[in-house]
Write a protein that binds this DNA or RNA. Structure first.
Lengths: 158, 158
DNA sequence: CTTCAATTGTAGCCAAAGCTACATGTTAGT
DNA sequence: ACTAACATGTAGCTTTGGCTACAATTGAAG
């Protein structure tokens, strides 16, 4: 079937998106997946530094639920990408770039969590799902979320 | 720092979750990520079969925006996991198990999309983000979503 | 019935993200 | 000042999910 590459594939009943549109969407999801881990690390490092004064590799590994070599490997990737630095045996630090990313990610995380809670998702599920969902929320969606929250807060206040 | 493994790490200002809780959440997100691709394939195969009568490897590759060997590799994984079968040069088919998964995934996808739209997310962003978000939505969240939608539909109707 | 282009399959590469096992540093407590 | 326990680092393996390049199969058109 389908000898020629593209000409107007019969769009039927449920109307699939066009190939291009669908490929674009999947591509976005793929790239979000590949940055998700970096974002998790950066966010966690920022949290640890803020709340305990330092971010050590093993603490990070324990909190992520991975082995410490895995954490060290990923931290090496953070360094390669200019998001973090580390003085051996002295802990992990964020670069300026890492810090900027951390702020963005944390704000987004909080917003996603609040929206889930506002929608009536139970606390623990909201916390768990937010951890996965946050990486796939675009700017446009973020904006809609914060407007929705403003609305629902107003409603509650009245 | 932190000679002993766990004793009550000082929970400060922003109150980090406990190590166990956080590790559990990250673990869930990780496993969701690893099944996300399988779910995408199964969903797409079901869509293609329903709307065009068959699912060919190259169509799948084109729609996902990946090379055809990548698609074939992943389809091999689907077969290994008992979700799909393929008769060489004859297209891809879902097993019973694959079909069950496809139904679940499609229902979830639709629900996530509807919620995003109901929250005021623009159409294209909603479609794109849903593609990533859907894989991280738990049963509890799904339930909350469908109740929220019922509510918002009622409101709109009034 | 041949041919040639599209589809499908195979081989072999890469990077990421996980693991276990082992080696090396550090440092708190005696 | 030692030493044991913990933290950190290194080596080497696996799986997943990408890729390109090439080989084989199909089937529509001539």
């Amino acid at each position: 079937m389908s000898r020629k590459a593209s000409p107007v594939r019969k769009q039927s009943l449920h109307a699939l998106p066009t190939e291009q549109a669908q490929a674009r969407r999947f591509g976005k999801a793929r790239s979000a997946r590949s940055t998700a881990i970096l974002e998790d690390y950066v966010e966690l490092i920022a949290d640890l530094i803020e709340s305990t004064g330092e971010a050590r590799a093993t603490d990070i590994a324990r909190r992520l639920g991975v082995s410490h070599p895995t954490a060290i490997n990923t931290i090496a990737r953070l360094k390669r990408e200019g998001l973090a630095t580390a003085r051996p045996y002295r802990g992990i630090f964020l670069t300026e770039k890492g810090d900027v990313l951390a702020r963005r990610v944390r704000a987004r995380h909080r917003l996603v969590l609040e929206v889930l809670l506002a929608l009536g998702v139970p606390h623990e599920a909201a916390e768990a799902d937010a951890e996965g969902i946050e990486h796939h929320v675009s700017e446009a969606t973020l904006k809609a979320f914060s407007e929705f929250l403003r609305g629902s807060r107003v409603k509650k206040a009245s």
